[in-house]
């Protein structure tokens, strides 16, 4: 790279450079804008709303669990999500989850465990919490700022006989979780 602008060879390569720059740097932008204008007018005026039907088709919704829903419904110790909320303050995001036994819980002492949380960005938050399905249990996780859980991984230990245990795993996709502002309490 030289600073001279007068030498002939430099002038020639400079011309090519300027031409390339103009084609890429101005040509593409002009093309993009013209295409935009053409498409806008074309869609709105000439084939109005052809994609109306298509655009309203929604992705198949998997069953999602929210507050009040029951887990382990097929077992004899179902538990109910009795509370689920994210408390947001300026400093931290806290996910609070509460379970209570369902009215139909039969077995007295099965153990249930939340193994981990899957966050929206794909990260896994491991911090197991185990409790007896016949009792209520509340638990909290500090989330990375801005992240919401999308899935719970639970496991249950069912006593079949005195000394044989059956493990059940359940994936629980979460629906909309209320997110509320809280002033952070100084601890």
């Amino acid at each position: 790279m030289t600073n001279s602008e007068t030498s002939n060879s430099e002038e020639g390569s400079n011309k090519t450079l300027v031409r390339t720059l103009i084609i890429i740097g101005i040509g593409i932008p002009v093309l993009v804008e013209l295409l935009t204008l053409f498409n806008l007018v074309n869609v709105q005026i000439f084939n109005d709303k052809t994609d109306q039907v298509q655009r309203r088709s929604q992705p198949d919704q998997a069953v999602e669990f929210t507050e009040g829903d029951t887990l382990f419904t097929k077992s004899n110790y179902p538990v109910v999500i009795s509370g689920m909320q994210i408390n947001v303050s300026a400093q931290e995001w806290v996910f609070e989850l509460e379970f209570r036994p369902s009215d139909t819980t039969m077995q007295a002492t099965p153990l249930v465990k939340v193994d981990s949380l899957r966050l929206k960005n794909g990260d896994l938050l491991r911090r197991g919490q185990e409790w007896s399905a016949s009792q209520s249990k509340s638990m909290r996780w500090t989330l990375p700022n801005g992240q919401v859980p999308v899935k719970l991984y639970l496991s249950g230990k069912e006593l079949i006989t005195e000394d044989s245990v059956r493990n059940i795993h359940e994936e629980v996709p979460l629906g909309s979780i209320p997110v509320r502002y809280t002033r952070k309490t100084q601890r």
Binding site: V88, S89, A90, W93, G146, V148, V179, Y181
Partner: peptide, 8 residues
């Protein structure tokens, strides 16, 4: 509207 604005 605050840190969880994008969720609203």
């Amino acid at each position: 509207c605050g840190p969880a604005h994008h969720i609203m």
